[in-house]
């Protein structure tokens, strides 16, 4: 496995100007709770955006809104110049172009790791099973768990499961990847192996939105850091700038709490 510090060169990598993901005036309520307040955000192709903030600030909701796992109440979200379609076939097609990695892995419990990875390509993309299988094995090799292909999710460690989940998302050859706290449910010694995979993805130019508490990853792999609090996008800055000179009180407060120990 590569060392985590190797990711330093990633920041400022290849990004093109046109946004792949764009949120305009997005609002979302959970009952009386205003979880996303007039959020504007655009993510360019190849850009790695890390979203941080205290819990309950709306980071996960923001991430889940991008592939409409969480429908929004007002505003628009466009992906690859197309507004998110309503529930149905068109939305399913769009979701197949956006990879998603969850905090709790959510691997299909009744399928082997290999079947988890090939299900989407075979059923959604109608790829030939043999071809999907070959590609899946390459992906599992890439994330370092090819030898676990025939096992069931419950037989793997958390870190291995999360790497399998990343492989499952990559198998759809997505245009962007969303990570919703991918390391929060992991034992500390397994965080590194997942971050390594994510770092290598970032280095390869994948467009990524990553909700995380891993400040090291934010520092080394992100092009931009978004700080959210109380449903609002409070800061949007390059990582060096954000960690060295946070402008808002909320961000200063947050950073002082997490970086002191």
């Amino acid at each position: 496995m590569t060392e985590r510090t190797e990711a330093v060169e990633v920041a400022g990598g290849t990004t093109t100007g046109e946004p792949l993901i764009r949120l305009d005036g997005v609002n979302k309520w959970f009952g009386p709770l205003h979880v996303l307040q007039d959020v504007n955000l655009s993510v360019a192709r190849g850009e790695v955006v890390v979203v941080i903030g205290p819990s309950g600030s709306g980071k996960s909701t923001l991430c889940r809104a991008i592939n409409r796992l969480e429908p929004i109440n007002s505003g628009t979200i466009t992906f690859d110049d197309r507004p998110l379609p309503a529930e149905g076939k068109a939305l399913a097609r769009l979701r197949s172009e956006v990879g998603m990695v969850f905090q709790s892995f959510n691997l299909f419990a009744h399928k082997t790791i290999l079947e988890n990875v090939t299900l989407g390509p075979v059923k959604v993309r109608k790829e030939k099973p043999a071809a999907a299988r070959d590609r899946a094995m390459k992906l599992l090799e890439r994330v370092g768990i090819a030898n676990q292909a025939e096992k069931y999710p419950a037989q793997l460690s958390g870190g291995q499961q999360q790497r399998a989940a990343i492989a499952r998302a990559l198998a759809m050859q997505p245009k962007a990847m969303l990570f919703d706290e991918p390391t929060s449910a992991l034992d500390p010694e397994m965080v590194g192996e997942v971050l390594d995979v994510m770092t290598s993805l970032a280095r390869d130019g994948m467009t990524m939105v990553v909700v995380t508490h891993e400040m090291g990853f934010a520092r080394h792999a992100a092009n931009r850091v978004i700080f959210m609090a109380d449903g609002q996008l409070v800061e949007d800055a390059a990582p060096d700038e954000f960690f060295a000179n946070p402008r808002s009180e909320r961000a200063k407060d947050f950073l002082s709490k997490i970086l002191t120990h």
Binding site: N67, R95, M100, F102, N106, H110, G120, K123, V124, M172
Partner: peptide
């Protein structure tokens, strides 16, 4: 069946029917 299973199935682009058939109903 944990809701995350159906959510992950939707996230890779399975339609409602495929989701039921391949992910939710077998479990």
């Amino acid at each position: 069946v944990p809701p995350g299973q159906a959510e992950a199935a939707r996230a890779i682009g399975l339609t409602f029917g495929q989701n039921l058939r391949y992910v939710v109903l077998p479990q």
